[in-house]
C-alpha cells in the first residue's frame, strides 16, 4: 500500500503524518492522530458528522483525500476550546440550549456553525439553516441547535 507523508497545521500545531495514500482526512484524524471528535456517520459526504474546518471552510473530512491536506490548516472540534479548558461560546451555547442530545452529530454541527460565524458573525436565520443543512441530526429537530447558534451570533455583535 502506497503511503504519503503530509505536513499541515492541526488545531494550531504543525504536524506531519505518514499514512496510506487512500486514507481520507477523517481516517487520518481518527486513526493516526486519535482525534475521534469527527465521526463517520455515512462515509460518503451525506451526513456531516465528519465536518472539520480546512483553511476556514467547513468540509466533509470523509471525502477529503489526505494528500490534499499538505500545507493546509485543519481545525477540529478538539481544537476550539481554550487551552485552559474554557469552552468555545458555541460549545457552551450547545450545552445550555439542549442543542446536544445523543451528541453524535454535535462535533460536525459545531464545526459547521463555527465556519459560518467565523466569516459572518451576525448571520440571518436562513444563513444558519443553510450552513447546518449538511449536518443531519435525528434527536433535536434542529430547533434548539439553530437557537444556540443564533445566541452565539448575537453574543458576538
Amino acid at each position: 500500500m502506497k503511503k504519503v507523508s503530509v505536513c499541515f497545521t492541526l488545531n494550531g500545531d504543525s504536524v506531519t503524518a505518514e499514512v496510506p495514500v487512500t486514507w481520507s482526512l477523517l481516517k487520518t484524524l481518527r486513526e493516526y492522530f486519535e482525534l475521534t471528535g469527527a465521526k463517520e456517520g455515512c462515509g460518503v459526504g451525506e451526513c456531516g458528522c465528519c465536518t472539520v474546518i480546512v483553511d476556514g471552510d467547513a468540509v466533509n473530512s470523509c471525502l477529503y483525500p489526505i494528500p490534499e491536506i499538505e500545507g493546509r490548516s485543519v481545525v477540529t472540534v478538539e481544537g476550539i476550546a481554550g487551552k485552559e479548558g474554557t469552552l468555545h461560546p458555541l460549545q457552551k451555547a450547545f450545552l445550555e440550549n439542549n442543542a446536544v442530545q445523543c451528541g453524535f452529530c454535535t462535533s460536525g454541527m459545531i464545526m459547521s456553525a463555527k465556519a459560518l460565524l467565523d466569516k459572518n458573525p451576525d448571520p440571518a436565520e436562513e444563513d444558519i439553516r443553510t450552513s447546518l443543512s449538511g449536518n443531519f441530526c435525528r434527536c433535536t429537530g434542529y430547533v434548539q441547535i439553530i437557537e444556540a447558534v443564533r445566541r452565539v451570533a448575537k453574543g458576538n455583535t
Partner: peptide
C-alpha cells in the same frame, strides 16, 4: 439546568462505540 454534565460531547471527547 444546562447539560454541562455532558461537556465531553461538545468537545469531541465522548467515546462512542465507533471510537
Amino acid at each position: 439546568i444546562p447539560r454541562t454534565i455532558e461537556a465531553d460531547k461538545v468537545c469531541g471527547r465522548a467515546i462512542y462505540i465507533n471510537d
